[in-house]
Each structure stands twice: as structure tokens, then as C-alpha cells.
Amino acid sequence: MAKVPVQLTLNGTERAEFIDGGLTLLNALRDRFGDTSPKGGCHQGTCGACSVIVDGDLKLSCLTLAETCNGAHVETTAGLAADGIQHPLQRAFLDGFAAQCGFCTPGMIMAAKALLARVPNPSRDDVVEAISGNICRCTGYEPIIQAILSAARSNSQNAA
């Protein structure tokens, strides 16, 4: 099968790979770029575990073709901690018992990050809407909602 070149910036680092046409961004990230933080829970766009940020927008990487991301900036949870310092969302998920089995967590954090970039001081309804595409089977969602609201508060305190 003919290979397609894909060059993208993954968590701030320029990367390039030759991939099979039709490969999803999820499989490209996991199998070719070596970033296994996005998870494949359904491969049909319903669970949100594969959520990543592409050029600032939240995307389901299992429904995104890797070749459409040529030149894009791709962010995943693996790149969130800068120089070993946890991101406020990571801190809030840790402190708030917002992760149990951990499988939905990377996607959930990406959904939250995309929300906070757009709405720095979200309401509870904003948070519920923002994670409505991300399924968690362990927590019952409430600790996750509280963690995202808490991260937003600590962000605004830091900004003040």
C-alpha cells in the first residue's frame, strides 16, 4: 500500500512518519508516534477515550484520519506536564479522586483542557456539556466535574 507522509507537531515536538492511507490519528499516535496516552475504547466515536486537541479543537482521534493532520499541532495528555510540573488539571484529578481505572482519564483531561481554553471560568453546566462525549464507568462523573471546576478556580487564582 502506498505510504503517505505526515508531519505534525506533537506536544511541541516536530515529528514525521510515513503511514498507510486511511490510518486513524489514534492508531498513528499510538503505533507510529509512540504516544499511547489516547485510548481506543470503541473506535467508533462514542466513548471519548481517544480525545486529543488538534490546532486548539477537541477531536476524536479514532474518527480523524492521520493524513488530515499534516502540519497540525496535536496535543495529548502525555504532553501536559511541563518539565515534570503537573498541569492544574492533573493536580485537580489527583487530589479529587477523579480517576479510578484511568482509562478514560487522558481523554477526559483533554476535553477539560479544551473547555478551559475556551471558557476559563466555566459553570457546572459548561463542564457537564464539555465532557458529555467522554464515558467514565467508574466515578459516576461527580469527582471529575468537581476536579475540572477546581482546576478552573486555581487557574484564575494564578492569573490574578
Binding site: 499511547t36 495529548t76 502525555a78 489527583l94 480517576a99 482519564t105
Partner: peptide, 11 residues
């Protein structure tokens, strides 16, 4: 949980 929130947990 530290590895869950950084995406490092190896499933």
C-alpha cells in the same frame, strides 16, 4: 493515579 493523569499507565 499519578500515572493515570499523565497518560503513562501501561494498559
Amino acid at each position: 493515579v499519578p500515572n493515570h493523569v499523565t497518560g503513562r499507565t501501561a494498559f
